[in-house]
Each structure stands twice: as C-alpha cells, then as structure tokens.
Amino acid sequence: MSTRAEPTRKEVERTAHSIHPGEWRVDRQRPIATLLGSCIAVCLYDPRLKFGGMNHFMLPSSDPDKAQDDLLRGDYAMEVLVNAMLAQGAQKTRLVAKVFGGGNPVSAIRMSIGENNARFAREWLAREGIALQACDVGGPWSRKVLFEPHGGAAWCKRILGSMAVADEVVREETEYARRLVTPATTAEKKIELF
C-alpha cells in the first residue's frame, strides 16, 4: 500500500490545467486552475472515489430575449459538470462543493453580476442536495483558484489592486460576454467529445 503525500499549492499551480469562462473539466489526477472576476467557479468532489471537477461561468442562466450558447450558462455548466462526474462513477449523494468568485474587481462595473452568480450557485447546490463545504465569494477582488481533484483541496488567492490581473479578467469576461450575445458560427463552436 502506497501513501500519497498531499501536494503543496505551488505543486498544484505548476501542473494545473487552466480553464476559462464557459469551460469545465473533470480529472482524477491533474489539478485545475482558473482566474475569476465576477464569474463563479464551482469545484465538485466525490470523497469516496477521490476525483473531482471544476466549471467557470459568468451568468446564472440564459436570457430568453437573447440568443446565447447553452455551454456558457451557469445552469448548464452545473448540469454538465455533475453529469460528467456521474458518468465516471460518482454518486450525487456523495458530492461536496466549494464555490469561488462573484467579485467586483473593476469598480467601474456597477452591476451585480457577481452577486447574482454567487446566489445562483448556492441556491442550485442546495436545490440539488449537494453539500457546500467552502465558499469565498463577493468583494472587490479577483481570485485565482486551484483545485486538486484527487484529494479535494482547493486554494483561493484574492488579488486586489493588480491592474494587469484586472485587465486580464476584464478581457476574458468581455470576450465571454460577447460570445453570449453573438451566436457562434458552426466553425467557431467548440465541441468536446468524450
């Protein structure tokens, strides 16, 4: 029987697979990372099978008045993450969650996108009976999140006052918002088969 030492945050960060707005990933070994502003990342973990996943979404649900890609909505992002974990043997009754993001790192943005996202994530998890183990949402900062899916550990670094990070978050979220309101052509749609 071999024992596995828990990885340090630096080891997790060095080997992590980064996800961006509108993406998700389930893994058994490789850590997952993302950078958040008003977006939310939900980490799900099955403690018995020792694997997990993370998603990254910007809006809770679709607006019926706008054409939006289903893959970019929070309600869809949650369903696809849970279903991907169930497909690998997880049981919904064992899943536990950690929620991060929902901040307002750019003071010029006076909308409550982050607050709405955080409320949606908590309500969705409660409705589905998934225990919320940790939550770091809101505030005037961006966040870098690292998730180690084998052991379920997550690290959240709050980033305040860094214009370079704020610019990167705004750039990613602006591009994501553009994709939400502009229907993608067939050539632009990214489909992951598994």
Results as ranks from 00 to 15, higher is better:
1 M>Y: 04
8 T>F: 03
13 E>V: 04
17 H>C: 07
19 I>G: 09
19 I>Q: 02
20 H>A: 07
21 P>L: 04
21 P>W: 00
26 V>W: 07
30 R>H: 04
31 P>H: 07
31 P>G: 06
35 L>Q: 02
35 L>H: 07
37 G>K: 03
38 S>R: 02
43 C>G: 09
50 K>L: 11
52 G>C: 05
52 G>D: 00
55 N>M: 05
55 N>R: 05
56 H>G: 08
58 M>N: 09
63 D>C: 01
69 D>G: 06
71 L>P: 06
76 Y>G: 03
77 A>H: 08
80 V>W: 00
84 A>K: 06
87 A>P: 00
89 G>T: 06
91 Q>C: 10
93 T>D: 15
94 R>G: 03
94 R>D: 13
95 L>K: 01
95 L>D: 03
95 L>R: 01
98 K>Q: 15
98 K>S: 15
99 V>D: 12
101 G>N: 04
101 G>S: 00
105 P>H: 09
109 I>M: 12
110 R>P: 04
115 E>I: 07
115 E>S: 14
119 R>T: 15
122 R>T: 07
123 E>K: 03
125 L>E: 09
135 C>N: 09
136 D>E: 15
137 V>I: 15
140 P>C: 03
143 R>E: 11
145 V>L: 08
147 F>D: 10
148 E>L: 06
152 G>F: 08
153 A>M: 11
154 A>Y: 10
155 W>I: 01
157 K>G: 02
170 V>H: 06
171 R>E: 14
177 A>Q: 09
181 V>E: 11
183 P>D: 01
187 A>P: 05
190 K>S: 07
